[in-house]
Amino acid sequence: MNIFLYLDENTWFHRLDPRTKIIGVLLLFGLIIVFNHPLYMGAIALGLVGLAAAAKALPNFWRMRYILALLVIFSTVLWPFFAKGPTVIWSWGRLEVSRESLMYAVAMGLRLASFVGAGLIFLSVTTNEEFTHGLIRLGLPYPVAFAFSTALRLVPTFAGAGATIVQAQISRGLDVESGNIFQRAGKFIPLGVPLFIYAVRHTNMLAMALESKGFSPGEPRTWYLNPQMRRGDYVALAVLTAIFLAALFLRLQGYGAVLPRL
């Protein structure tokens, strides 16, 4: 079972310094928040797909296609009822849908999908260790970063154990597919208890292994990974910052918004 999204390619994006990747994805998030006009959002979304293609991250987009589609559809269907605009095109009692709210809804759908997309690109080109290392270089204390990366690392391990536990209990006649919500909650115990105990045992073993390899949190250490900020990194950051500031400027001038709020 592989729930990690990292794709081991060697594109220009993969070679960027993790700090660039982290700041870069934050700038992308910022850019995504700026506009709420569907055309502008559409342009950004297209741009992200282009980035994903260049970073060879499209397989992950394909893997997540249902989630991405759901985000767009749900948002487009639900938002019109909550956002209010001046040009009403349909109303029923207090419910009304306006031309602006509809456009806003499409823009929000694209925004959510773009968020996920930007995150996907980041995770497709960054290994767990690079991410941790980037955070440390950006000033996060090592023990915190280490705990964070270990937690990330253990997710697939526990997911694998969880899958085995489900199979083991099904073989003993546990019927996980029927019953009302309370009955189903009761069935969680035969699954949850072994998983919890597994997690405790596993974590304890991991702690032993780490200590046996000379690990002590808080002590200084050296790094094998040695990312360097190169010219490409500065160029990438400069370009992204410029795009972000330009977008912000446009928005403050009143462009790219169907409804006044962000």
Partner: peptide, 17 residues
């Protein structure tokens, strides 16, 4: 617990500074 074979081996020596 590492995501690549080489980093797994690097962990101990990193701790030894």
């Amino acid at each position: 617990f590492s995501t690549s074979v080489e980093l797994e081996v690097a962990f101990g020596p990193e701790n030894l500074r």
